[in-house]
């Protein structure tokens, strides 16, 4: 009789301990990055592009990478939205709830969601060679778009599926076509779509393996889609492998900027998703 009480207490303690370890790991990572990155953060770093001997400890900043990251993440989020929105509308409005095609599409996107970004990077690279393209901003955008379409489709699909079917019925009963009903639906789930965009943007801005092959690397600000571009994670990765200590310190600074940006995006995405629908029904 006594034994099961001891067992209960023992496992409860273990569970609390594990939860503490997991939650602490988040703060440990953020804390490490903040404490190492803060000293090397400066206005110069945010506002200037690298000079010639930047990677040997010379003057300059990482503006090129910040701008490149924003271009790639924004471009691919827009492109991915244009592709995923019709797909989500099709499988939810045009298809019946248990249609095999809808389920197959969902399964396909679940599988694509699990694909590592290096596979998209390698595939994007192969595709670019096939098309005769050089590593450029456009190449990076294409690879990241492939990476984030599954995230968008899955997130938006989840939001749309939570919409009660009475909304559809009300729209149909007024004589609206499925196409017109889609707009009623979009109005209802607009905040959810925004959440999906933010999540995809956050993933796109932080990923390295997909842009490594495809975006190239450049110290200048990209002027056109054909120019090679650097991204923030690439800047972290490249500077960290330098033997010069100052350059390494700047890698920590860049990592801190990246972490702040990504955390801000994630937090606002979660806050958005608290009010997934515009009107309560």
């Amino acid at each position: 009789m006594k034994w099961k009480k001891i067992e209960e207490q023992f496992f409860k303690a273990l569970m609390i301990l594990s939860t503490v370890v997991i939650v602490a790991s988040f703060f440990l990572i953020v804390g490490t990055i903040v404490s190492k990155g803060l000293p090397s953060l400066s206005w110069e770093m945010l506002s200037e592009i690298p000079t010639g001997d930047f990677y040997m400890g010379g003057e300059g900043g990482i503006l090129n990478s910040i701008v490149g990251s924003l271009y790639i993440a924004a471009g691919s989020s827009l492109l991915a939205l244009l592709i995923s929105l019709p797909i989500v509308i099709y499988i939810n409005v045009y298809l019946k709830k248990s249609s095999w095609m809808g389920n197959l599409t969902r399964l396909g996107y679940d599988v694509l969601f699990g694909m590592p970004s290096i596979v998209y990077g390698a595939f994007g690279f192969t595709l670019m060679i096939y098309l005769g393209m050089k590593a450029s901003l456009l190449g990076g955008i294409i690879a990241v778009t492939l990476l984030i379409i599954p995230i968008m489709v899955r997130t938006m699909d989840e939001v749309v599926r939570s919409v009660p079917k009475e909304l559809f019925e009300a729209s149909y009963s007024l004589g609206a076509t499925r196409y017109e009903t889609a707009f009623v639906l979009l109005k209802q789930v607009a905040p959810g779509i925004f959440t999906a965009i933010l999540l995809a943007f956050g993933r796109g801005i932080g990923d390295v393996a997909s842009v490594m092959f495809t975006a190239g690397f450049s110290n200048d600000l990209p002027q056109s889609l054909q120019d090679p571009a650097s991204t923030l994670p690439l800047a972290v990765f490249n500077q960290l492998s330098s033997p010069v200590e100052e350059v390494q310190a700047r890698a920590y600074g860049a990592a801190l900027i990246l972490t702040i940006v990504v955390l801000l995006i994630s937090i606002s995405a979660r806050m958005m998703s608290k009010r997934l629908s515009k009107n309560k029904i």
């Binding site: 997991i22 990055i33 801005i205 932080g206 390295v208 393996a209 972290v236 990246l258």
Partner: peptide
């Protein structure tokens, strides 16, 4: 835990 999933791989690497 959700926020942890949003941290980019390269930051995990730096850590």
């Amino acid at each position: 835990v959700d926020l942890l999933s949003g941290i980019p791989p390269v930051v995990f690497g730096v850590w």
